[in-house]
Nucleic acid binder design. Structure first.
Lengths: 220, 220
DNA sequence: GTCTCGGCAAATGTCGACAATCGACATCCG
DNA sequence: CGGATGTCGATTGTCGACATTTGCCGAGAC
């Protein structure tokens, strides 16, 4: 593109994101370099770079001499990923606990209500957006760069892979309550509680997503 | 090459690792693609792939249109990285707490003694090796793939960047005691204690490394 | 003396073509 | 008929050349 002064790589990455979100690329599918190249009117070089980055982010898996495939996580791997995210985000939030102002907390509570509203009306896109914003606000208070980087990566990965199912996992009330509970714990300013709460938050979701996949289709 | 059926990329990655360990590449140095290419008798394509992987692992940083540079962490970033590793490894070990047999624990204690011995005799290479083995045995008991992957990456990064200083941070007795303390805590089989112990273990080391760098040279 | 502008060298970004490898199908032999 | 083997198409791996961008350096104006 022109707007982004940087290279084609990011453009390709964005394109693949989109394909993933639209469901045009599903777990297990092979991602062909030449196909993407002709699609985007580029040579294979920038495509390969983009794909490699996606592999690094865990969205694709790479088999040498064979190709890149959309990551297909087993139920166990799904749970693992969510558990790990809970660990990272829990710690990040705990580290930044003192940094949360009353205003922040009220913003978060407002998000809870909005999430419920959007969920109730079936506005999936807005729901996702607010949800992302919610957690973003949470772990971005931390100033541990390394921690944030890993959290972002994992968050991004889970977001793209399980994007579609968010609305079918919990009822609108559950969504609201679960997130309000987090804000509640945040208010108490006790590190271990905060860590524990976020771990459980993601642990539950991981279990649900994994069960969902187990029922609907066999992963891997 | 022939012995390794996989691609040149891994070969290049290994080569850069070596250069880093030997101190031929230092933080801040630019890593030139064409230079590596002629050095290894390859074209720039596999070099670029390898460098990109190294960027993903955090060993290099990448400036678009400019090049790749050996990561130069600020003191804060050094501490952050160690803290994060403590978080990950602490959790991984805690998760696998029941999996540690008495035999494992005795092996670990044996490692402690060997580390002290090698440190005392100035055998840096062996010291590093055992140290790596020690922590490897610790977090590899976990079966959380995602967690292990991140831990490995971070471990690898810190290993390569601060490899050289290990022996100068602690006395041989301290090295032994610090690791024996970990085994001790492991024996008690109490999750929170284990997590806490590993966090502190790496926190301390991070502080030391950061201070070391602050005194000897200005990072970044 | 300092600042600005323009051009030059060097490095990265991209391209199209060729080589090596893998998977699948067809074929051959027991 | 079943399993091993050879061949073919498709895809990735690698290459060398070209395009573009960056940062430096020096000439010239103020």
């Amino acid at each position: 593109m022109v707007i982004n002064k940087s290279t084609y790589k990011d453009y390709v990455v964005a394109h693949v994101y989109e394909r993933l979100q639209k469901g045009e690329l599903n777990p297990g599918d092979q991602v062909l370099e030449s196909r993407l190249a002709t699609e985007l009117g580029l040579s294979r070089a920038p495509i390969r770079e983009a794909l490699q980055q996606l592999v690094g982010d865990g969205l694709l898996t790479y088999k040498p001499q064979v190709g890149n495939f959309v990551a297909a996580l087993s139920p166990k791997e799904i749970i693992d990923a969510y558990v790990t995210r809970g660990l990272l985000e829990g710690f990040a939030v705990a580290e930044a606990l003192e940094g949360f102002t009353e205003e922040d907390l009220e913003d978060l509570e407002e998000y809870c209500l909005q999430m419920e509203k959007h969920a109730r009306r079936g506005k999936q896109k807005e729901l996702i957006e607010i949800g992302t914003e919610f957690h973003h606000l949470l772990f971005n208070k931390s100033n541990n760069i390394q921690l944030i980087e890993y959290t972002q990566r994992l968050s991004h990965k889970l977001h793209l892979l399980f994007y579609k199912h968010w609305a079918s996992l919990y009822t609108p009330e559950e969504i609201r309550d679960r997130h309000q509970a987090l804000v509640c714990v945040l208010r108490r300013k006790e590190r271990p509680l905060v860590e524990q709460a976020l771990r459980e938050h993601y642990n539950e979701t991981g279990q649900k997503v994994a069960r969902f996949y187990n029922e609907n289709e066999e992963g891997v």
